[in-house]
Simulated assay, not measured.
Amino acid sequence: YSSLNSMNLFEIVHSLKRQFGPEPWTLYKGKHLLCFADNHDVTRAASILTNPNHLPLIYGLAFGMPGIPCLYYGSEWGALGEKSQGDDALRPAFDAPEWNALTDQIAAMAKAHRESEALCYGDFKDVVLTNHQTIFQRRTDAERVLVAINASDAPYTAHFDAGCGQAVDLITGKLHDFGGGSELPPYSVAFWKCEKA
C-alpha cells in the first residue's frame, strides 16, 4: 500500500512488468488473475490514501492492468473502513447506494473494460514511466489500447510514438490526437483505443 499511498507509479508498473511483461520469464503471462484494491479483510483503499484524488486512479489501474478487476461493495463510492476497527468497519450494512462522481468514473471504466478485448485479454507493455505518470499498452491481434495515468496535481505532456495518429478514449468517448504530444490533465486516467497497428 505504500506505493499506492504515494501513487509511486514507477514501483507499481515495475511490479506489473515482472508479473505480466513481454519477457518469457514473467510470472503470470497469459493468466487472468483477480485484481482488487481492497476487500473484506483489509483496510479500504479510501482510508489508506492521503490524497483522495488518487482513488479514481487506483481503479484506473485495476481496470487497465491485466487481470479480472473486482470491486469490493461500497468502494465504488469511496466507503471508508479501517481493519483496526474490526469487521463491522470493513463489512458495514449500507441503507442505500451513495452514488457520486467516483461511482460515475468507475462505471465508465468498468464499461470500457468489459467492451474492450485488449483490456480483457491483451498483453502488457510499458511505454512511458515516471514516478507520477505512466502509459502502458494492452494489445491483442484485434485491438490496441494505451492506458494513461497522471497521478500528479499538474498537467503532464507525454511525447512518445503511439503507433497511431488518433485514438478514442474508451472512458469518455472523446477523440485523442497524438500529434505534438499527449497532455494528461492532473489526476487523470485515459484508455486510448488506437486503430490496429
Rank of each mutant, 00 (worst) to 15 (best):
Y121H: 00
L129F: 08
R114V: 04
A142F: 03
V147Q: 12
M109Q: 11
V128N: 06
Y121A: 01
S116M: 07
H132Q: 13
L119E: 09
E143K: 03
A142G: 05
A148N: 05
L129G: 02
T134D: 02
G122M: 15
A108F: 06
T134A: 06
R138L: 01
Y121D: 01
Q133N: 08
D126E: 14
T130Q: 13
N131T: 12
G122E: 15
G122I: 15
T130D: 00
R144V: 09
L146P: 04
H113D: 11
D141N: 05
E115A: 10
E115C: 03
L129R: 14
R114D: 07
G122Y: 14
F136H: 03
L146T: 10
K111I: 06
R114H: 12
R114E: 13
Q137N: 11
E117T: 05
A108N: 05
H113I: 11
V145R: 01
Y121N: 01
A112T: 07
R139M: 12
E143N: 02
T134I: 08
L146G: 08
A148G: 12
R114I: 04
M109W: 09
T140G: 00
H132I: 06
H132M: 07
R114G: 05
H113F: 15
A118E: 10
L119T: 07
L129K: 14
V145C: 02
E115F: 06
E143W: 12
Q137L: 15
